[in-house]
Design a protein around this nucleic acid. Structure first.
Lengths: 94, 94
DNA sequence: GCTTCTATGTATAATAA
DNA sequence: TTTATTATACATAGAAG
């Protein structure tokens, strides 16, 4: 997308890498916002630059996204391995 | 980006919304991966569809991203409000 | 570390399967 | 829900502030 085609690998020149980071970071945040609005989705995006600086976007709030993520992963765990916690519960019922 | 220009607001037609979600989700995941590689950044992306399904991508691992996020926010908190915890520490030192 | 310019590479809207 | 096609809209590489 630009004057030349690029290969996707770490940009060696630190100045170019910084400029590309700035542009693409803006681009992806825009995409994240659009996706949330267009498709009625909840989106959370966290980016740490190579210098360690944090950039974030959440369609709702990051706390909401992370909490929901945790709950969703728990459910996935139960579906993937139905015996794990359920077994405990059944044992506890006796 | 396509046959017609669109306005960024919720797509009413659920079939179109779903198709757009599928395409744009792929697009943004690709962008997230590229950003991580090109710019040596740590990226975490969480998306819940309008039907509640979870989609995720992390350049490292989501746990790593969330943990680092938590630590970064704590630091921000301290920088923004230097008196909060520091005051306690100083008091404790006496 | 962000912005402008602009030629060019990409993503994707509309549509159909 | 994902994919194929293709015309268009958009993102961005490179260069220079």
């Amino acid at each position: 997308m630009g004057r030349g085609k690029i290969v996707i690998r770490r940009i060696d020149n630190s100045t170019s890498r910084q400029v590309t980071f700035s542009k693409r970071r803006n681009g992806i945040f825009k995409k994240a916002k659009e996706l949330g609005i267009l498709c009625d989705a909840e989106v959370g995006l966290v980016i740490f630059s190579s210098t360690g600086r944090l950039y974030e976007y959440a369609s709702s709030s990051m706390k909401s996204v992370i909490d929901r993520y945790g709950r969703a992963k728990e459910e996935q765990q139960l579906v993937a391995n139905p015996n794990s916690e359920l077994k405990v519960s059944l044992v506890d019922l006796r």
